[in-house]
Amino acid sequence: MNTNNKEITLEEFSKVDLKVGKVLNAENLKGYKKILKITVDLGEEVREIMSGIAKYYTPEEIVNKNVIVCTNLAPRKFGEQVSHGMLLAASNENGRPVLLTVLEDIKPGSKVS
């Protein structure tokens, strides 16, 4: 058991809204070298999310991919753009983010539990 991380209760974890999103579009965010502007289908809505993965992924690599999105994160501004969520990723041994996805095709907006 890793004692460096603070434990949270199941009730606290249930406040995090995680959903499967399908990447509809991705482009480099003008004025930012590390940020991609990503349009994600979350089933009942489409959102724009800014993600610091441009150094590791090209826009073409992630279009049409299913990703895991935290949908209830407070919005964050990047210049004139506002990010409405966060793509989840794990870091490999070199610190490179690896986007989290699902093994099977699933409807955008499906809740992760």
Rank of each mutant, 00 (worst) to 15 (best):
N4G: 03
N4K: 14
N5F: 12
N5H: 04
K6Y: 00
E7C: 01
I8P: 07
I8Y: 13
I8Q: 11
T9L: 07
L10Q: 11
E11Y: 09
E12C: 08
S14F: 12
S14C: 06
V16Q: 09
V16P: 00
D17W: 03
D17K: 14
D17A: 11
L18M: 14
K19R: 15
K19M: 03
V20A: 04
V20E: 05
V20K: 05
G21V: 04
G21P: 05
K22Q: 12
K22G: 10
K22H: 09
V23Q: 04
V23N: 08
N25D: 14
N25S: 13
E27I: 03
E27D: 14
N28M: 13
N28D: 14
N28E: 14
L29F: 09
L29Y: 06
G31L: 02
G31H: 03
Y32I: 00
K34F: 03
I35L: 13
I38F: 02
T39Q: 11
D41L: 07
G43I: 07
G43S: 11
E44C: 00
E45M: 06
V46N: 00
V46A: 00
R47M: 02
E48N: 15
I49H: 01
I49P: 05
I49A: 06
S51Y: 02
S51Q: 00
G52A: 12
G52S: 13
I53E: 03
I53P: 06
K55V: 01
Y56A: 08
Y56P: 01
T58L: 14
P59F: 08
E61W: 10
E61D: 15
I62N: 06
I62F: 10
I62E: 06
V63S: 10
K65F: 07
V67P: 01
V67D: 02
V67S: 03
I68G: 04
V69H: 05
V69P: 10
V69W: 04
V69A: 05
C70Y: 09
C70N: 14
T71G: 11
N72L: 11
N72H: 09
N72I: 04
L73T: 01
P75V: 11
P75Q: 10
P75I: 12
P75T: 10
P75G: 11
P75D: 10
R76K: 15
K77W: 03
G79V: 07
G79F: 08
E80F: 09
Q81D: 15
V82Y: 06
V82K: 04
S83I: 02
M86D: 04
L87D: 05
L88W: 08
L88P: 07
A89H: 09
A89M: 09
A90N: 01
A90L: 12
N92E: 10
E93I: 09
E93Q: 12
E93A: 11
N94K: 15
G95Y: 09
R96F: 01
R96G: 00
R96M: 02
P97K: 02
V98I: 15
L99G: 04
T101S: 15
L103R: 08
L103P: 01
L103F: 06
E104F: 07
E104H: 13
D105Q: 13
D105N: 15
D105G: 01
D105L: 03
D105I: 03
I106N: 07
K107G: 00
K107Q: 13
G109P: 09
G109W: 01
S110V: 04
S110C: 10
K111Y: 02
K111R: 12
S113A: 07
